[in-house]
Amino acid sequence: MGDEGRICCASRAPVPGWKPATLEGCLDAVAKGLAPPNYVVYPVESTPVQATIPFARGSSKLTRPAPLESLARLLAEYPDGKVVVHGTTPCGESPSEDAAARLAASRVAAVRGDLERRGVPASRLVTMDRDAFFSFRGEIHHEEAVVLASSPAVLLRGFPSKPRKTELTGDRCLPGATAALSLPAEEMEGRALTIEACHAARCAAAQLSLTALRPGDRVALALSGQLSAGAFLAWKEQARWALDVRTVVEDEQALAPGDVFSLRVQVDGRPVAQVQEPLTYTREKQHPGSRYTCLQARVQGRSQAAGSATRR
C-alpha cells in the first residue's frame, strides 16, 4: 500500500521469495505491450580543454597546427560547449599597446580560421580580451595565467561536453491492437468486473473482484484464452477509471486489414462498455527511440454501451 495505490499483478497469493511489484514489472509480466518503455539516461560528460598554440615573436603565422588538429577532433566528439580563445603578446614584443592588441587579434584570427576549416563552428569559439581572460573562472591559477599570457601564443580553454545520452533498454515492438476507455465510477459499482477482448476471431477474458477496489488503485491483469491480451485499470481524477486493453499477435502474417476488434466490459453481467470495429494497421515504432517497427492498430470508435463510457 503506497501513495500511488495498490498494484495487482495476478490472482496468486505471494509466495516465498516474492518481492513487491512495480508498475513496469506488472505490465510487462501480464499485459505485454502496455508496459512503459524503460529509458536509461546517462549524465552529461565533460572534459577540460587547455591548449597553448605558440607563435614566433612578432608573428601571427601558425607554425605548429598539430594541437589544433587534435582539438578539432575533440570538439567534434563533444559537440556542446564553447572554447575561449585568447591571444597574447609579451611585454616589449610590439612598439605600442595598440600594435600589441592588433597582433594578438591577428593570432586569434589565425587560430579561429584554422579551427573553422577543420569543421569547428565559429559559434563555439569565444574571443576573450585580457581583462576578461584573467577573470575567467576556470581551473587555472592566477599565477599560471600570468605566465601563459606573457608568451607569444594563443590560449584555448573551456569545458566542452557531450550531450545527455538516452538509451531505450529491452527494445522491442509487439504487433497488435490497443483500445482505451474511460469508465465513470458509478458504472463500476458492483461485485465483479468482466473484460472480454477479441481480435481476429480469437478471444480472451478476465474477471476482477470489485469489492476491494478503491479510488487510487491500479490493476494489471492478464486475459486468458486463445488471444494474448492484457488490461490495465487505473483510477483517474473526476471519478473515472481508465481501462487500457492491449492484444499481442507475435506473428505479423496473421494480421490483415479489416480484422475485427471487439471489447466488452461488464459489471455483474451488466454491460458497461462495448466496442467493435475493423482495424487499420500501420507500421510504426511502439515507443520513442525504438529501433524497431511493427504493425500497430489503435481502436478509434466510441463505446456502444448504453452507459456513459467513452474513448479517452
Rank of each mutant, 00 (worst) to 15 (best):
P16A: 12
S290D: 04
R164F: 01
D98C: 03
G2P: 06
G17T: 11
L174V: 03
V15E: 10
F136W: 13
V40K: 09
L155E: 02
L263N: 02
V15H: 05
L168F: 12
T22Q: 11
E252H: 08
A212L: 11
L213M: 13
Y292T: 13
R191T: 14
G119I: 15
A35D: 09
D217V: 02
L255S: 12
L223K: 00
L115C: 15
C173G: 08
R302T: 09
A35M: 03
P79N: 05
G5D: 14
S290N: 01
D259R: 02
E284D: 13
E93Y: 08
P271E: 09
R124E: 15
V219P: 07
Q286V: 00
H287S: 13
P67F: 08
L75P: 15
L71W: 12
K32D: 11
R118T: 05
S161G: 10
L155M: 06
T310A: 11
G158E: 12
P48H: 00
A180C: 05
A234E: 15
P215Y: 02
A10F: 02
G158I: 04
R137D: 07
T88R: 01
S228T: 08
L23C: 10
A13K: 08
C9G: 11
K82M: 14
L243I: 00
A29M: 03
V154I: 03
A273V: 03
V15K: 05
R124G: 12
P16H: 06
A122E: 15
S94Q: 06
A105W: 00
E252S: 14
L125P: 11
G216M: 13
A104P: 07
V126A: 08
Y42S: 14
V146K: 09
V83Q: 09
P79G: 09
E167L: 15
G307M: 05
A145S: 06
Q300E: 15
S262F: 08
A201L: 11
D98T: 07
G58I: 00
P43M: 01
V85H: 05
V146H: 04
C8S: 03
G2N: 09
A56C: 10
E77S: 13
A204C: 10
E237L: 07
A234Y: 02
D171R: 08
P14K: 10
E196G: 08
T89C: 12
A222W: 01
G176S: 06
L62S: 09
P65Y: 04
E143G: 05
R118G: 02
D259S: 13
M128G: 01
Q296G: 03
T293A: 01
K32C: 05
R302V: 10
R157N: 08
L168K: 08
S182T: 07
P95R: 12
A242I: 00
C91D: 08
V275A: 04
D28N: 10
P160C: 04
A177F: 00
R57V: 15
A100V: 00
D251S: 11
V111G: 06
P152K: 02
R264C: 10
P90S: 09
V260K: 06
P163F: 03
L221G: 05
Q304M: 11
L208D: 01
A239R: 12
R214V: 11
H287I: 14
V15W: 03
L181R: 01
A297M: 04
D98G: 06
R264Y: 05
Q207P: 01
